[in-house]
Design a protein around this nucleic acid. Structure first.
Length: 615
DNA sequence: CGGTGGCCTG
DNA sequence: CAGGCCACCG
């Protein structure tokens, strides 16, 4: 079982938002390094500015790096532009204001640049002005370019407000962590407040996004103007356009390169995209927080023993644009889901095999699971008697399901440090969703009603039922030689005594008998058919041999036989073939050697089978 | 000697 | 699949 510990928790922003990691995938600049740590300390309000700064910085740096490889670009221009852009990106307070960077430059705060700067003062000043104007052009609105700094100030103010809102909203959470532990008006009010603030924050972010988009699109327009105006040096255009034009001309003159235009335009395009995406991600993040806050339920009274979360279903198809509570629910689902790590335990869709309705499978058939597999809405203490948990499990599974299953909240999971003591309890609960290993597609409970009633309540059986037999057959796909201890572990609802144990063991003995008979039969047939090489013998799901075995152990064909079983079957068949083709079968005990090989091929039975209500 | 596996038979 | 029997093993 791959139960990798979660990387997400409900209460930390950095972990609260899978979008951050999503961003890691989307944006090359969002790598997990120093950036992540710094991000973790940001509140949502400042995250947006942080993201913007970082994004811009990375883009600009990237552009500079590209320039470095342009054959004819002077080192001075590269250093110069990098200096400006770095200042622009790194200065927290500068926002899009540019005075600061100018001051920094002129005051020689960047030794590396000033050294280069001195012999090229004229050039550099011109370039600086151009670069500064480009940035100003990107930061100011079309109609108020002379008020560029005012615009920046406004943005800064909004950002500060966001920060402040975020701070206010987060503060009580840390100070009163127990507020969500309590049922009642107090908790509800706090939650409402939180939601309200988050909504406000979201709106602010959306406004900011809008403004940014406007600005960026305007920059594009400006650039078009410049492009059409390259002939005369751009005297007619305003200062920004001139500046851009000069910058472009400069590049053209310096390196006779056609790339400057493209670079500027690409930069702007990329910036536009990245900004939009970044801000969208931030907004999405807020949405998730909002959803989480809305859906936050008081934790179960039982203490959380571990933050370990088992595998979860993923709902990556949920759209990020969410506006109402239903959408929020979906968002929360997506937010709370984690990709399954192990391919072996990939979740699967529910079976296409629909069995006739049964009173015992009301939950789980065609009903979307409210929470991922192995996530119980409840948890049981270590001391909880098996019976209680089983009855609870039964209630969860067959009882008034909607009351429990509708809860989309994430319950704390149990630590499985003591599997023996706990496996029955939480595994049994986990079995409510039986897609884990994806082997058993459907559960149903055939058999006499009387037995079913007892079985359904998960009380220890005085005897073995047809369901136990079916379960044992399925277990045979994993283990041909189960120990009695294993059997006891995997049949927790059976009251074991000598008789029951022997019966179960006898079952497996009978399973083996059939198995080996089939193997011998098909091996002999292979010899008769003139197969010359063991390598020519294989067992696939299409093989006649497999069909025979599957028909015997998995008659309903509602179980996905593990590949490993096919491998073992193939090994067995090959062993038989080899022995027969070597005439070893003349020895009365010729099969013993084969048994010895096969008994080593056992694999672990999935934990699912430990559930008393499995099958 | 108890537990277990294999074989045979029904 | 179960019962019976036998053999093997710790």
């Amino acid at each position: 079982m791959n139960l990798s510990p979660p990387e997400q928790s409900m209460h930390k922003l950095s972990e609260d938002c899978p979008e951050v990691s999503k961003a890691n995938l989307l944006l090359p600049c969002f790598r997990r390094n120093a950036y992540d740590e710094s991000l973790a300390s940001y509140h949502s309000g400042s995250i947006i500015s942080h993201l913007l700064r970082k994004t811009i910085h990375n883009k600009l740096t990237s552009l500079d790096n590209n320039l470095l490889y342009m054959p004819n670009v002077s080192a001075a221009s590269v250093v110069d532009s990098e200096c400006n852009m770095t200042d622009f990106a790194q200065d927290d307070q500068s926002c899009l204001s540019f005075k600061d960077s100018t001051d920094d430059l002129s005051s020689g705060s960047q030794p590396s640049s000033t050294d280069v700067e001195r012999p090229l003062t004229e050039h550099l000043q011109a370039k600086r002005a151009r670069v500064e104007n480009i940035i100003r052009g990107m930061s100011s609105s079309p109609n108020s370019r002379s008020h560029g700094e005012d615009e920046c100030e406004a943005i800064r103010c909004r950002r500060d407000i966001l920060k402040e809102n975020k701070r206010k909203q987060r503060l009580p959470q840390h100070q009163e962590p127990s507020q969500f532990n309590m049922r009642g008006n107090g908790a509800k009010t706090s939650k409402d407040e939180e939601c309200h603030k988050l909504k406000e924050q979201l709106q602010s972010m959306q406004r900011l996004l809008h403004q940014l988009q406007e600005k960026i699109s305007h920059v594009n327009d400006q650039n078009y103007c410049v492009n059409e105006d390259t002939a005369d040096g751009g005297e007619e255009c305003d200062i920004q356009e001139k500046s851009q034009s000069s910058y472009k001309d400069k590049l053209n003159v310096d390196n006779s390169s056609f790339t400057s235009d493209c670079e500027v335009r690409n930069l702007q395009e990329t910036l536009k995209c990245e900004l939009t995406r970044t801000v969208s991600d931030s907004i999405d993040m807020v949405f998730r927080k909002l959803s989480t806050a809305l859906l936050k339920q008081p934790p179960h009274p039982q203490p959380c023993q571990s933050p370990e979360y088992p595998e979860k279903e993923t709902h990556r198809d949920s759209p990020p644009e969410l506006s109402d509570s239903d959408e929020n629910t979906r968002s929360a689902e997506r937010f709370e889901s984690t990709p399954v790590n192990s391919p072996e335990h990939q979740t699967e869709a529910l079976s296409l095999v629909v069995r006739k309705p049964s009173q015992f499978n009301s939950v789980g058939q065609g009903v979307k699971r409210p929470y991922p597999l192995h996530q119980s809405p409840f948890q049981f203490g270590y001391g909880t008697p098996l019976h209680d948990s089983q009855i609870l499990e039964h209630l969860l599974k067959y009882g008034p399901h909607s009351a429990f299953s509708a809860l989309p909240c994430l319950p704390p999971s149990l630590e499985r440090s003591s599997p023996d003591s706990m496996e029955h309890t939480w595994e049994s609960v986990a079995m409510r969703s039986k897609v884990t290993s994806g082997h058993l597609v459907q559960h149903h409970r055939p058999g006499p009603p009387g037995l079913l009633a007892v079985d359904a309540l998960c009380l220890p059986h005085e005897g073995l039922t047809p369901n136990h037999l079916k379960k044992a057959k399925l277990m045979f796909f994993y283990t041909r030689y189960p120990s009695s201890n294993l059997l006891k572990n995997f049949f927790p609802d059976v009251k074991f005594n000598r008789c029951i144990t022997s019966q179960l063991i006898k079952w497996f003995s009978n399973f083996r008998e059939f198995y080996y008979i089939q193997m011998e039969k098909f091996a002999r047939q292979a010899v008769i058919d003139g197969v010359h090489d063991v390598k020519d013998i294989s067992v696939s799901r299409e093989s006649e041999l497999f069909r025979a075995l599957n028909m015997h152990y998995n008659k309903a064909n509602d179980f996905q036989v593990p590949d490993r079983f096919l491998e073992v079957a193939e090994i067995t068949l090959q062993e038989f073939y080899s022995a027969i083709s070597l005439s070893k079968d003349s020895d009365p005990s010729w099969k013993k050697a084969i048994y010895k090989v096969i008994c080593k091929q056992d694999s672990d039975v999935p934990e699912d089978f430990k559930s008393p209500s499995y099958i």
